[in-house]
């Protein structure tokens, strides 16, 4: 039986250290406050030893055309981390896809560029295969109770409804959807289960749900009530005395099929 997936999300930001610029692991709160945590490569190694199922790397402040820092990081990770990883942040073109895939990424996530140019989903899917095209969707609840997709790290309203946008991304050839509620991000009060469940009734590709896990219970809710194939979390694994091994045991105990390694 296919297992549900537990995916640590490593958010990245370029930081200046003297004359050097390095990628630093950070967490965010409702996409605003950015808190530096440490070195992403050593953290990726630790997640591997804790048998995480996959990793997601997201550059939250990408600078156009500047891929050296990210590709350098990917090559370092790929040398010793033997699990699938997704990379995103600032991807705009097929050439960006090719560059990231050839530097060790298995999947590439696109967010703002997919909204601006939905044809990118189709072309990337045709060229590299649907399995490596992840469409990442960030959304907020509006004052009138409706939901709206935001791009550019939560800055730009798009007028799109997250559910219909996810279904359009599927039609255009996305391999998986990464769905994040900006309102829930980093608050550790639980995922937006209602929106996930609504989408899952209609979606035919895997759903990765993120934003808001603060307890093992929240992951369980994401799988059982939200129906997600995978749940990802950043803050949860950075600020709690929690790691994927412990969380996985809680999930397993709730009767959900998940890998327990050794």
């Amino acid at each position: 039986m296919l297992n549900k997936r537990l995916i640590p999300k490593l958010q990245l930001k370029a930081e200046q250290f003297g004359s050097k610029t390095k990628m630093v692991l950070v967490t965010t709160r409702q996409f605003g406050e950015v808190i530096p945590i440490g070195d992403p490569v050593s953290q990726a190694r630790i997640y591997q030893s804790q048998a995480a199922d996959e990793l997601i790397f997201l550059d939250i402040r990408p600078q156009e055309g500047q891929w050296e820092l990210l590709t350098g990081l990917l090559r370092q990770v790929a040398e010793e981390v033997f699990m699938p990883f997704t990379v995103g942040g600032g991807v705009r073109t097929l050439e960006d896809f090719r560059l990231l895939l050839s530097n060790g990424a298995d999947k590439v996530s696109i967010n703002s560029a997919a909204v601006q140019n939905p044809d990118l989903i189709t072309r990337a899917s045709e060229r590299f295969g649907a399995q490596c095209v992840i469409v990442s969707i960030d959304y907020r609840r509006m004052p009138d109770g409706s939901f709206q997709v935001f791009t550019q790290s939560g800055q730009n309203p798009t007028g799109l409804d997250p559910i219909s946008w996810a279904l359009e991304a599927e039609r255009r050839g996305a391999g998986e959807i990464l769905l994040t509620s900006i309102d829930h991000d980093g608050k550790q009060e639980g995922l937006d289960i209602a929106t996930a469940a609504l989408l899952q009734g209609k979606l035919n590709i895997p759903l990765i749900l993120g934003g808001g896990c603060g307890l093992a219970r929240h992951f369980i809710d994401g799988f059982t009530q939200g129906g997600a194939e995978a749940v990802c979390a950043g803050t949860f694994f950075c600020f709690r005395d929690q790691n994927p091994i412990q969380t996985r045991s809680h999930i397993k105990n709730a009767g959900i099929p998940i890998r327990i390694h050794n």
């Binding site: 039986m1 296919l2 297992n3 399995q131 391999g175 035919n204 590709i205 895997p206 194939e229 890998r259």
Partner: peptide
């Protein structure tokens, strides 16, 4: 859903030297 994406257990239909020292139902990606 199709594609199948993720970790699934395998069952051996035959013994094979390439499965040496693996547990009974190991999971693969």
């Amino acid at each position: 859903k199709v594609p199948q994406v993720g970790w699934n257990q395998i069952q051996y239909d035959q013994q094979h030297p390439i499965f040496q020292e693996l547990p009974q139902n190991p999971e693969f990606y």
